[in-house]
């Protein structure tokens, strides 16, 4: 498949930003495609890990951040495990997610950034995740009330989800972590 990229005004595109955030140097990539062949989602999604790397190497800019795979990547690290050059692609994907959020890139189906924000919100409040609350907020935020509606009674009936948030965590410590890092970011 031919690879098309748009060169940005900034020389070398976003590759340096990706390296800065992830600490991973992708220039060692040989394009052997072991990552893509092992990737569980690449056959169901446009783009693939090896293609993302090649595009970055060729100087791709922010348009790369619209790639669906950034949010369909399941962080399973099969790519990294099998890479002969030991490139930690999972960390590269995390860096692309951070950049996608920063630049307000397009969000494909399934609003993963919203899910992440909601779950982190429950941790900040209760010190532990609160699944049921997060599910409800996500559904409200995406207006996807009907999707998976049959699952809620299914897991409630089996007692397979907690009704109320946990109260046992060291909330003070967790709040301190969030607040400290938020302050450090602002500086």
């Amino acid at each position: 498949m031919p690879i098309k990229i748009k060169k940005e005004a900034v020389r070398r595109g976003i590759i340096n930003r990706v390296k800065e955030i992830s600490g991973i140097d992708i220039n060692a990539c040989l394009q052997c495609k072991k990552c893509t062949n092992g990737c569980p989602v690449s056959e169901y999604t446009s783009s693939s890990p090896s293609e993302i790397i090649k595009k970055l190497q060729l100087g791709a800019g922010e348009e790369l951040l619209d790639s669906e795979i950034i949010w369909t990547c399941v962080s399973c690290a099969t790519c990294y495990s099998r890479c002969p050059m030991e490139i930690d692609m999972a960390q590269v994907m995390d860096a692309l997610r951070v950049l996608a959020e920063e630049t307000g890139a397009a969000k494909p189906d399934g609003n993963m950034p919203l899910m992440n924000k909601i779950l982190l919100g429950t941790i900040k409040t209760f010190g532990r995740t609160y699944d049921l609350g997060a599910m409800a907020l996500y559904k409200a935020g995406t207006a996807s009330y009907m999707k998976d509606m049959d699952k809620v009674p299914m897991i409630l009936k089996k007692g397979k989800i907690a009704l109320l948030p946990s109260q046992g965590a060291d909330k003070k410590m967790v709040k301190q972590i969030f607040n400290h890092l938020e302050k450090a970011r602002k500086k």
């Binding site: 962080s75 995390d94 997610r97 959020e101 992440n116 924000k117 532990r128 046992g168 890092l181």
Partner: peptide
């Protein structure tokens, strides 16, 4: 008082947060 380790979402948002949690 154990607390959430940050999986599976913190690493997608903020590396330092995920390690700290």
């Amino acid at each position: 008082g154990w607390s959430c380790c940050g999986t599976t979402m913190a690493h997608q948002v903020d590396h330092d947060l995920s390690v700290s949690l």
